[in-house]
């Protein structure tokens, strides 16, 4: 869709209904420059702001930025973007990354939502807790070790040598990883004050080769679980701690803001993931066309 089959061009959209979308565009540009120096295949990257369905349809992958999740969700609903977004993430399963508010929107279940609940897109079988650490005066920065960066990109990306300085602004966390179910998380819907995303069936024709595996925990925040208020503690998985980055198939979510750091390492890593996913999708599409 949009970009030509077999070409090396990839279009990345950043949902621009509200929030810090421009910061992502800036870091994507930086990341693409880094990739140009290390990649064997030269890509032509296009980064664009997405506000309507035709713009979304032209994308190979999408970032849902930080902002106010209630505002993004309501604006999406009123300009008829919620269903196209659900199709993008859950039916044709194109790679998507959500940061902070974006993670909330990509969760299949969420707590501490506004009165009357809020619409979710879904795509990650997790339950998030909004504003987990409290209000703005509880917002903070922390040094993170992100092993997935080093595995993929080697020494320069080793966060045990050079930690990733992450920024948490009224941040959510993943408070529970849910078992993958086909259909909506109905077990979660019966809980008080928890909202769930509606179920969508994956389109096997266009999303071939994408296996809906379980959720992988990509990063946790050490030493913070103890600081959680007592009444919330019992709701947390004992073994989980504070989960701040997760991935399920090609949907990725972080509760912090890599786009506010000026550190493009996660963006480089994500573009590489997208690059592989797009190649696979195009190869499979070409095979189908031949047979």
């Amino acid at each position: 869709m949009g970009s030509q089959e077999g070409s090396s061009a990839i279009t990345i959209g950043v949902l621009a209904l509200q929030g810090a979308f421009n910061e992502h565009v800036q870091l994507l540009r930086e990341a693409a420059q880094i990739l140009a120096t290390k990649d064997i295949i030269q890509r032509t990257w296009t980064f664009k702001e997405i506000r309507n369905k035709p713009e979304l349809d032209s994308c190979d992958a999408l970032i849902i930025p930080g902002g106010e999740s209630t505002a993004i969700s309501l604006v999406a609903q009123r300009c008829n973007m919620l269903e196209p977004l659900r199709d993008f993430v859950k039916v044709i399963r194109k790679p998507t990354w959500g940061t902070c508010a974006g993670l909330i929107l990509l969760a299949e279940a969420a707590n501490a939502t506004k009165k009357g609940g809020q619409e979710l897109i879904g795509g990650l079988d997790v339950r998030v807790n909004r504003n987990h650490f409290g209000r703005q005066i509880e917002s903070f920065q922390a040094d993170l070790n992100l092993p997935f960066l080093q595995q993929a990109d080697g020494k320069d990306f080793d966060t045990s040598q050079k930690p990733f300085r992450a920024i948490f602004i009224r941040a959510p966390i993943v408070e529970k990883v849910l078992p993958h179910v086909s259909g909506a998380q109905t077990g979660q819907a019966s809980l008080d004050e928890t909202v769930t995303a509606p179920s969508r069936t994956i389109d096997e024709n266009v999303a071939k080769g994408i296996k809906l595996a379980d959720v992988e925990i990509m990063a946790t925040l050490p030493g913070r679980a103890a600081a959680v208020q007592d009444d919330k503690k019992e709701k947390l998985d004992a073994e989980a701690g504070d989960i701040i980055a997760v991935r399920q198939a090609n949907v990725f979510g972080t509760s912090f803001h890599p786009e506010l750091t000026g550190d493009p390492r996660i963006h480089v890593w994500w573009l590489e993931q997208v690059s592989e996913a797009v190649d696979r999708r195009r190869a499979l599409a070409a095979e189908t066309a031949e047979s």
Binding site: A16, L17, Q18, G19, A20, F21, N22, E23, G66, G67, E68, A71, C100, A101, Q136, S139, F140, Q141, I167, I169, R170, H257, L260
Partner: peptide
């Protein structure tokens, strides 16, 4: 961290 919240309010 202070300017971070303002950035999250952009476009709103």
């Amino acid at each position: 961290v202070k300017t971070g919240l303002a950035r999250m309010l952009k476009g709103g």
